[in-house]
Amino acid sequence: MEKSRAAKEGKIWAIGGGKGGTGKTFVTSAMGTYLAAKGKRVVLIDIDIGGANLHSFFGINRPKKSLTDFFEAGASLNKLAVKTGIDNMSLITGDIHSLASDSIKFTQKLKLFRHIMKLNEQYVIIDLGGGSHNNTIDTFLMADKMIVILEPEIPSIENVYHFIKNALFRKLRMSLREYGFKDIVEQMWERRKEYNIKSLRELMDCIRDSFSYVEDIIHKVLSDFNLYLILNKIRSSDDILIGSSMKSIFMKYLGVDTKFVGFVEYEDSVWRSIRERRPFMLNYSLSRSAREVEIFTENLLKGKEIKLSRN
């Protein structure tokens, strides 16, 4: 499949995580800037349905061309990319209207994915925005690195968990269908009372127990699920533990191995730099947050986890 080829390069990164306001757009812009400054060719794609505003993190106006032109007029993605004011990095903006709810057909979506994979840049970073609509989840699943941004707050924890659960559930269904087991998941889920299934993990265990031959498929789904976790807006070092806890829960509840790659402290410099209409990583390049962005981006590149001195 096309995906496995791209996965080796690991060039498509998607940033998601349910709730709005956790810092997905900030992380996308900062990460992109850092990679571009390292000399990598980067394109950012903003498909935040709730409000595409990645451009404002670079102090540029909303681009006139958007993915609408791709869907409606067949414009190539390269033509939609605008300059960000930073060398090596361009930006493609989504459009609130065309990407809303169900207006995009499944085939259109696949076409977009194909074109994204064919982009010539070394890194494609996609800002998914909030929500867990199927389009959002499918884009997330297409990425080589699926990155969630977690804020150490209860609503964010809940949202991130359910976002990942939905994504995994969808991936599982798609994979089983691909291998010809069309309705196993649906049937099992419908009869969940009978089997006493309360969670996705229990559902997976139950499918495993009932149909031993799908074991390999489930195993493959779980091992291909390249999930990365970034903790944003932490206010004390105790908050870092929440990242470790989340990682543990993904493993114990869903069977997903997550890489906890880093955190960013809550700092005024972030919103200040948006107001000043200057890219954060350039404007506050010496701030602690900037250093933290560097650390997790490097970890993402290397597929490594953050080193925590206190476990």
């Binding site: 209860i154 924890i157 968990y161 309360k198 969670s199 929440i242 806890s245 114990k252």
Partner: peptide, 15 residues
């Protein structure tokens, strides 16, 4: 804990 509470329904107490 803060992490377990919001998703308490996901995992039975027995589990």
């Amino acid at each position: 804990s803060m992490v377990i509470t919001p998703i308490a329904d996901e995992f039975s107490k027995k589990k």
